[in-house]
C-alpha cells in the first residue's frame, strides 16, 4: 500500500492533464496557453496534455474576469472534473477582476466561485509563468493540498 501510494503521488505530479476554460477572457491569456503546446515551451515534457473533456482533466486553467453569465458554466465544469483536482487562475482577471473590477457584470475574482490553488499574475502572463503555475498545481495535487483559496460570495 505504501509503495502504491508513493507511486500514485509521483504519477499525480508527473501527469497533469489540463482543461482550459475561457470565462469571458479577451483571448490574450488563451493565446499564451496555446503557445505552451509549441516547440518552444513544449508542455508535454512535464507530462501535461491538453484535454478536450473536463472528465479527463486534473487541472482546470481559468482565464478571464468571470462574467456573471459564465459563473454557472465554471461551477459545472469544475464539478465535472474528477477528484483530486486543482485550479490555476491564469492572468490578472480571474485573480482580481483586473480592469473590470467593480463592474456589475463580473465576479471580481474566480475564488468567489470555485476554490483556486495557484494564481498566475500578468496581463497576459508569460508562457513560462503559466507553465510554472501548472507545475506548482501538479505538486499540490501530489501533496493533496488542493483547494487553498475559496471565498464563496452570495449575491442578493
Amino acid at each position: 500500500m505504501g509503495l502504491f501510494s508513493s507511486i500514485l503521488k509521483l504519477s499525480r505530479r508527473r501527469s497533469p492533464w489540463v482543461y482550459v476554460l475561457n470565462a469571458g477572457s479577451c483571448n490574450g491569456c488563451d493565446i499564451e496557453i496555446g503557445s505552451l503546446l509549441s516547440p518552444r515551451y513544449d508542455m508535454e515534457q512535464i507530462g501535461a496534455l491538453r484535454q478536450g473533456s473536463p472528465k479527463h482533466a486534473d487541472i482546470l486553467l481559468i482565464t478571464g474576469p468571470l462574467t456573471l453569465r459564465s459563473a454557472d458554466a465554471v461551477r459545472s465544469i469544475y464539478a465535472q472534473i474528477p477528484e483530486p483536482k486543482a485550479v490555476v487562475a491564469v492572468g490578472s482577471c480571474p485573480a482580481t477582476g483586473n480592469v473590470f473590477a467593480g463592474s456589475p457584470t463580473v465576479e471580481d475574482g474566480v475564488l468567489h466561485v470555485v476554490p483556486v490553488d495557484v494564481f498566475v499574475p500578468g496581463c497576459p502572463p508569460r508562457p513560462q509563468a503559466i507553465l510554472a503555475g501548472v507545475q506548482e498545481a501538479a505538486h499540490l495535487l501530489a501533496e493533496g493540498k488542493t483547494g487553498r483559496w475559496h471565498k464563496e460570495k452570495h449575491h442578493e
Binding site: 507511486i7 500514485l8 508527473r14 501527469s15
Partner: peptide, 8 residues
C-alpha cells in the same frame, strides 16, 4: 509517461 498516466 504512459505508466504515470495509467497510475494517475
Amino acid at each position: 509517461q504512459p505508466f504515470f498516466d495509467f497510475v494517475k
